[in-house]
Design a protein around this nucleic acid. Structure first.
Lengths: 212, 212
DNA sequence: CGAAAAATGGACCTGCAAGTCCAGTCTGAG
DNA sequence: CTCAGACTGGACTTGCAGGTCCATTTTTCG
């Protein structure tokens, strides 16, 4: 379907995706119409349906993929080399800065619960993004283990999962309330907990009540 | 506007809110139409607009309030008396069970990012819910402090904020991916971190890089 | 009992957003 | 050059969801 694409064609297609992403962030998925996107990108309906034959759903999916790719890129290079406490704090600052300036327009917030629910395609994109994100965190924690800054007994995957969930929640709350305090708290708490880990190792739950 | 309301009227109004909540959970805010709600509640359009003169927005807001009230109630009585480790683990289990059985239909997920963004009314509901939720957690942590199970030096509000954010994120991820592993991780990690707190008190960030 | 007000049913209107269509222009490979 | 196919413009169709209206029934209350 997308075999022959002129340079001009690719440019137009890209322009549509970029413009659509802007409009979606600003107005939300529900409120954004194709006409809004057309006006923003100075294209016509025939062009939009030429490049996205299945219409709005297909376009939304393309935008979702585009935004998902951005999310991790924006955290680089810090996310890629979390091998010192300094790196962790720099990553934290980058993340907070990014989401604070973004305010209440969230690329994920739109896709996360809007498209992501029903269509399997969007769900796959979100799942894959989370997987990669968590993997980066886990790699960072393992690097700290190797360097002897974090005890080897730490459950890396669970820690990374908890941190990732915290970030998602912090961002969600930022989107809903406009305050970034929770995102701050969760990042500080997460890193602090990492530093303190091992002080009382293996004590995750009382004997009678397993951790499940 | 809502001064005179017969018993019958209140019943109908309540039926509409309940049915609307069901439909919204099942189909999502975007996909749900008034006709869906009317069919579900066996009411007519005139009734809906009789009880919610401003139309869909007003109804959505009422449903949002209804759902928000549910969220905390469903965690009782455990959330209200987090004064022992046992209580904390029971609360954790309740929370997980609730959201697991709920699967990917989330009352908040709908409202959280859907209505909550634009309209100030919905935002207020979400903010208030989060505030109360966090307050319960903070009260629980303080109770543990008073009982001597958690060091008094702990920053209660920050800890509660981080835990709340983690829960929100865990639920979000559950909604998006269908897996509850992150919610598990964040709760276990949170409670564990609480138990381990004080082992290395006050060490929240290196001197050169403040916690902001 | 009897009027006033509330509750209900359902047909109707309206606007708008997604999607269609075709005619016309541009591009590039041979 | 030329022609096939990619690209573009914009009018048109269609369906449907939100909202309106009024006639009718039911309830309330003096």
């Amino acid at each position: 379907m997308r075999g022959p694409l002129t340079a001009k064609g690719q440019a137009t297609r890209g322009r549509i995706i970029h413009g659509a992403a802007e409009v979606l962030r600003e107005k939300g998925v529900a409120a954004a119409t194709l006409d809004d996107i057309l006006a923003r990108t100075r294209t016509s309906k025939s062009q939009l349906f030429h490049y996205f034959p299945s219409g709005k759903d297909e376009l939304l999916l393309a935008v979702a993929q585009f935004e998902a790719d951005q999310v991790l890129d924006d955290q680089q290079p810090y996310l890629g080399c979390l091998d010192s406490w300094d790196a962790w704090y720099r990553w934290r600052d980058t993340l907070i800065e990014r989401y604070e300036e973004q305010g209440d327009q969230c690329p994920l917030g739109s896709l996360f619960l809007q498209i992501g629910r029903n269509t399997p395609g969007a769900r796959a994109i979100v799942t894959e993004l989370l997987r990669q994100w968590q993997e980066h965190l886990a790699t960072g924690i393992r690097a700290m283990q190797d360097a002897g800054h974090v005890p080897a007994s730490l459950d890396v995957d669970r820690t990374a999962a908890a941190l990732l969930a915290g970030i998602q929640g912090g961002v969600s709350i930022l989107l809903s309330t406009g305050h970034s305090a929770h995102l701050h708290a969760v990042l500080d708490e997460g890193i602090t907990s990492l530093r303190n880990a091992g002080s009382a190792p293996g004590l995750s739950a009382p004997a009678g009540i397993p951790t499940r």
